[in-house]
């Protein structure tokens, strides 16, 4: 059963012309993370690797390709968590870094804190020698077009939000049975400056605990926060629910209690996994026992053998 890695590229409504890009993006991220796990890498390294690749892929709302805030600027949030020690690192509203997930990992590894925000996070990045990148390098033509479109007085912000909630995330279990999660996002389109969503909030955007499992969430951030979705799902698993049943219970609770839609990827320490969503779509992929699993629409589940390139 071990190792296993599951990634998502965001829950929401993905325009048809972009859906192939999303699918190939999550599949290639999961392949790289799985190769790392097979080579003896930790679940922590694997989830950071997967999310880093998704951040670098302009098809997703994280790192390069992030949505723009009201002022047309990029502010990003990220969280990583180690299920062995419950250590975590997060950054919120950080600017001018290519890979917020790496900065979150540095917060975890190099400081006594769990979260750094805004300008303080940038100062820390500089002190660690993380290269500062121009904002332009994070902005795609597509994200600028969507930002402009949403500025129009007749824009429907809710519809636009659903069009791209492509937060990215990953969960994994390594061969030692350690779990980890990582989540990264550009947030929501046309958000206020300084808006922090669920992603960097431990228990909401993600949670990992070797005693129960790991979850990374995506969807309507404010709803996810209200129900602390990741922690909520793991409570169900602590009570004996499977990864899949717990994920469904968490998403159903979020829908009935606060009217929010979203998606999650979940694993337990034994290697059982789930990719579940209440939104129209979620690009997801998983790798286990040399098999790649992936899908985009509800009920979709394709598989493919992963060739072993190590030989």
């Amino acid at each position: 059963m071990l190792p296993v890695v599951v990634v998502h590229g965001g829950a929401g409504h993905i325009p048809k012309e972009r859906s192939d890009l999303s699918t190939s993006g999550v599949c290639s991220a999961v392949r790289s993370a799985y190769a790392l796990l097979q080579g003896g890498g930790s679940s922590l390294d694997a989830v950071v690797e997967a999310v880093l690749l998704l951040e670098n892929n302009p098809s997703f709302n994280a790192g390069c390709g992030s949505v723009l805030n009201m002022k047309g600027e990029v502010e990003m949030d990220a969280l990583v968590m180690d299920g062995k020690t419950l250590s975590s690192g997060a950054v919120s509203a950080v600017r001018n870094v290519a890979n917020p997930i790496q900065l979150a990992r540095l917060v975890m590894d190099k400081t006594s804190h769990a979260c750094l925000t805004a300008e303080g996070a940038s100062q820390f990045a500089r002190s660690m020698g993380v290269p500062e990148v121009p904002q332009e390098s994070l902005i795609t033509e597509y994200s600028r077009m969507r930002w402009k479109k949403n500025l129009a007085p007749d824009a429907n912000p809710v519809e636009c939000q659903m069009g791209k909630m492509g937060t990215v995330g990953a969960v994994a279990v390594d061969t030692d049975g350690n779990v980890a999660c990582a989540t990264s996002t550009g947030g929501m389109l046309n958000k206020m400056e300084g808006r922090v969503g669920d992603t960097p909030c431990i228990g909401s955007g993600g949670y990992a605990d070797n005693m129960s499992g790991a979850v990374s969430t995506t969807g309507h951030g404010e709803a996810i926060m209200k129900v602390t979705l990741a922690r909520h799902i793991l409570f169900h698993m602590e009570q004996g629910q499977s990864a899949e049943a717990a994920s469904d219970l968490g998403l159903a609770h979020m829908k009935s209690r606060v009217g929010g839609l979203g998606g999650v990827v979940t694993v337990d320490p034994q290697g059982n996994w789930a990719a579940r969503f209440s939104s129209c779509q979620m690009a997801w992929a998983a790798a286990q026992k040399d098999t790649l699993h992936y899908g985009l629409y509800t009920g979709e589940h394709f598989t493919q053998i992963i060739e072993d390139h190590r030989a």
């Binding site: 509203a93 925000t117 300008e119 958000k191 206020m192 300084g194 808006r195 922090v196």
Partner: peptide, 15 residues
């Protein structure tokens, strides 16, 4: 007064 839950740093002060 906002559709958000959390504001940080300078953004919170601007609000």
């Amino acid at each position: 007064k906002t559709s958000h839950i959390m504001l940080t740093g300078k953004g919170a002060n601007q609000f």
